[in-house]
Amino acid sequence: MEYLIIFFTGIVSTTLGTIAGGGGLISLPMMLLLGIPIHSSIGANKVSNTVSAFSSFFHLFRQKKIAMKECYWIIPISVLGGISGGWVASLISAEHLYIIAIILLVFAFITSMVGKRNFTGGNILKPTRLSVPGLYGIGIYDGIFGPGQGTLMLYLFAYLKVDYIRAVGYARLATFSSCIGAAVMYISSGVIIWGVTLSLLCGSVIGAQIGVRLAERLKPAYVKPILRIVTIAIILQVFVENVL
């Protein structure tokens, strides 16, 4: 029964995560509620995110919605960001990490309220003085903390005037890249509970396919409200669990 619950949790969390980020809001608390150790829960998330993120990216790539020549440079930057985040996390106390997470998310929320960009642009994604440090910084955030990484990524692409479906594809590629190192680390450390991880992974792959197909049909005007709701939920969860 536990594995079945985790399987359906993977479907729901990754569907949300593909559309607007924040899937970890569902999967991580559910696994902890079931009594799965924290490191095993995080490891399961990282392993499942690596596979599910690539599956949704590959679907859009196969449908020719995105071009590899436009986004190949995301991979090394996100991998480096994830590695850097893991190193930074070892130097900063948990209390400070949570404060940094809240500040970043509040900033993203305010930016979305005052900005008028709603994924309606058709700009080509290029390495620039904004996109490179932005992707690298979010990769660091993913390595340090994690929940909300996809949401922050979509905010960045909206600011860069990248249309929504391409933004989803590139955000999933960045998630795949930043999670690779973390997944290897958790596997090598021996904390992975494979029954839990494979149940979450199977559900996540299905959720990724549902999410990417919903994203193809979602009107850009609806994306920002969904992002704001997810952002508020992440902020409240982090604040209640780690600050109060």
Results as ranks from 00 to 15, higher is better:
residue 1 M to H: 08
residue 2 E to V: 14
residue 3 Y to I: 11
residue 3 Y to R: 06
residue 4 L to R: 02
residue 9 T to L: 06
residue 10 G to C: 11
residue 11 I to P: 01
residue 11 I to L: 07
residue 12 V to D: 00
residue 12 V to K: 00
residue 13 S to H: 01
residue 14 T to Q: 04
residue 15 T to P: 00
residue 20 A to E: 01
residue 22 G to D: 02
residue 23 G to S: 03
residue 25 L to S: 05
residue 27 S to D: 02
residue 27 S to M: 03
residue 27 S to C: 04
residue 28 L to T: 08
residue 30 M to L: 07
residue 30 M to F: 05
residue 32 L to Q: 04
residue 33 L to P: 00
residue 36 I to E: 01
residue 38 I to Y: 06
residue 42 I to L: 14
residue 43 G to D: 05
residue 44 A to K: 03
residue 46 K to A: 14
residue 48 S to C: 05
residue 50 T to W: 12
residue 50 T to Q: 08
residue 50 T to P: 02
residue 51 V to G: 03
residue 53 A to I: 11
residue 54 F to A: 11
residue 56 S to T: 12
residue 56 S to H: 07
residue 57 F to H: 08
residue 62 R to S: 10
residue 72 Y to C: 07
residue 73 W to E: 10
residue 75 I to L: 12
residue 76 P to N: 08
residue 76 P to A: 09
residue 78 S to I: 05
residue 80 L to W: 07
residue 82 G to E: 06
residue 82 G to S: 11
residue 87 W to D: 00
residue 88 V to E: 03
residue 89 A to D: 09
residue 89 A to G: 10
residue 90 S to P: 00
residue 97 L to D: 03
residue 97 L to F: 12
residue 97 L to H: 07
residue 99 I to D: 01
residue 99 I to Y: 10
residue 100 I to P: 00
residue 101 A to Y: 09
residue 102 I to C: 07
residue 103 I to Q: 00
residue 104 L to G: 04
residue 104 L to K: 02
residue 105 L to G: 01
residue 105 L to D: 00
residue 106 V to L: 11
residue 108 A to G: 04
residue 110 I to C: 04
residue 112 S to C: 06
residue 113 M to E: 11
residue 114 V to F: 09
residue 115 G to Q: 07
residue 117 R to K: 12
residue 118 N to F: 07
residue 119 F to S: 03
residue 120 T to K: 13
residue 124 I to A: 13
residue 125 L to I: 13
residue 126 K to T: 15
residue 130 L to C: 14
residue 133 P to K: 04
residue 134 G to E: 06
residue 137 G to Q: 03
residue 137 G to V: 08
residue 137 G to A: 12
residue 141 Y to A: 05
residue 144 I to N: 05
residue 153 M to D: 01
residue 153 M to P: 00
residue 156 L to K: 07
residue 157 F to Y: 13
residue 157 F to C: 07
residue 157 F to S: 07
residue 159 Y to L: 14
residue 159 Y to H: 10
residue 162 V to W: 06
residue 163 D to K: 11
residue 163 D to V: 08
residue 164 Y to R: 01
residue 167 A to C: 11
residue 167 A to W: 08
residue 169 G to T: 13
residue 169 G to E: 11
residue 175 T to L: 13
residue 175 T to S: 15
residue 177 S to W: 09
residue 178 S to L: 15
residue 178 S to I: 13
residue 180 I to N: 03
residue 180 I to V: 15
residue 181 G to N: 13
residue 184 V to M: 12
residue 188 S to V: 15
residue 188 S to I: 14
residue 188 S to E: 13
residue 190 G to W: 10
residue 191 V to K: 03
residue 192 I to F: 10
residue 194 W to Q: 05
residue 195 G to T: 13
residue 197 T to E: 05
residue 197 T to Y: 02
residue 198 L to N: 01
residue 200 L to C: 05
residue 206 I to V: 15
residue 206 I to M: 08
residue 207 G to N: 05
residue 209 Q to V: 09
residue 210 I to C: 05
residue 211 G to E: 02
residue 211 G to P: 06
residue 212 V to L: 09
residue 212 V to R: 02
residue 213 R to H: 11
residue 215 A to I: 09
residue 224 K to I: 13
residue 224 K to R: 10
residue 224 K to S: 03
residue 224 K to F: 06
residue 226 I to E: 02
residue 229 I to Q: 01
residue 229 I to F: 12
residue 230 V to I: 14
residue 232 I to V: 15
residue 235 I to H: 04
residue 237 Q to N: 12
residue 238 V to S: 01
residue 240 V to S: 10
residue 243 V to I: 15
